[in-house]
């Protein structure tokens, strides 16, 4: 019975994906989108990948990460340097760049994993912030990344014309993270979030799974970085600063920590909204600030419990009716 339910869910998800793709692709290739909206399609996908992967460490592992942009930058520079130097056809060099960018970022995930083994909570958050800043200043100081000047003239392998490919990558990322969360490894990760002492006591090697969560999240952040570089065409170390990490965190918080669906929806809203409110770039940060504070206070207030209780009641009656 349970298997059937899962299959039903899968079919529903695939249906949603197909419809979303059909609508967006129809608008795009039919020429109905303005230049502004066209240029937003890939950034939306990038933010979805970033948010879903950050959710793995912040939502499911329960450790605040303030250096996600650092992983992204490692992927972005790695990927850009590969395509700039390889000069092979797109179908060959871009996948290589994606995989290499992801792997390089996850290598940094392993390096961060070392202190992660010994820290948690506030301290861990600060260490991830510090790592992000270290990565930024290393990129700034190295010649291969062209220092503060950054890289330019990166081939646009991921601009709006290649939306289909980016869309597929995004869907693959979502499924990978979602499946991981629902696997034995994902359960171990969530158990660490809920109570790491109890997790250890039932035989979960806590260190291993903490590092695993960081490495997987870093891998996808790296991929998002590669796409970013090939979407914009230029890279600067300052793009991947602390503020970028917070921007991703805001998406995860707004969507609900531990909710993949929420991350996707919030990524779409928070990417498009500031662009629609043209000229409101100064308000963008204000919006982020208010989202963070309001969500946290709301989450721990009684209001949420009441709404949630009602919601559960509603769902319960619905299930009963169906049965």
């Amino acid at each position: 019975m349970k298997n059937k339910k899962i299959d039903k869910q899968l079919i529903k998800n695939i249906a949603i994906i197909v419809v979303v793709y059909a609508v967006v692709a129809g608008l795009l290739y039919g020429g109905f989108l303005t230049r502004q909206f066209r240029s937003l399609l890939v950034p939306v996908c990038i933010n979805v990948i970033l948010a879903v992967s950050l959710n793995l460490t912040t939502g499911f592992l329960g450790e605040l990460t303030l250096g996600h942009a650092g992983f992204m930058s490692v992927g972005a520079y790695t990927g850009a340097l590969i395509t700039m130097n390889l000069n092979l056809p797109l179908v060959v060099e871009f996948p290589i760049a994606l995989i290499a960018g992801g792997l390089m970022a996850s290598l940094f995930g392993v390096i961060i994993g070392v202190p992660v083994l010994r820290l948690h909570g506030d301290y861990l958050a600060i260490v991830t912030l510090a790592f992000g800043e270290i990565i930024k200043s290393l990129i700034n100081a190295m010649s291969v990344t062209n220092g503060a000047m950054g890289l330019s003239g990166i081939e646009l392998h991921a601009n709006y014309k290649h939306f289909t490919f980016v869309f597929i990558l995004t869907i693959l990322t979502i499924f990978a993270i979602k499946n991981m969360v629902n696997s034995r490894q994902g359960r171990a990760v969530c158990s660490i979030r809920d109570n790491y002492i109890a997790a250890e006591a039932v035989g979960i090697p806590v260190s291993k799974f903490k590092v695993m969560a960081f490495v997987v999240a870093a891998f996808f952040a790296g991929i998002a970085g590669v796409i970013y570089g090939h979407n914009v065409g230029t890279l600067k170390p300052t793009t991947f600063d602390y503020n970028k990490s917070i921007e991703i965190l805001v998406i995860v918080v707004l969507g609900g920590m531990g909710s993949i669906k929420g991350s996707i929806i919030a990524a779409v809203i928070l990417t498009i909204l500031p662009e629609v409110l043209r000229g409101a770039d100064e308000f963008r940060m204000l919006l982020y600030a208010i989202v963070l504070i309001a969500m946290m206070i709301f989450n721990s207030s009684q209001l949420k419990e009441r709404i949630l209780a009602n919601d559960i009641v509603a769902k319960f009656t619905k299930v009963k009716k169906e049965a």
Binding site: C190, N195, A201
Partner: peptide
């Protein structure tokens, strides 16, 4: 073991 102060995975 079990714990004196209950330690369940509360969100699971």
């Amino acid at each position: 073991r079990t714990f004196q102060n209950i330690r369940l995975f509360s969100k699971m």
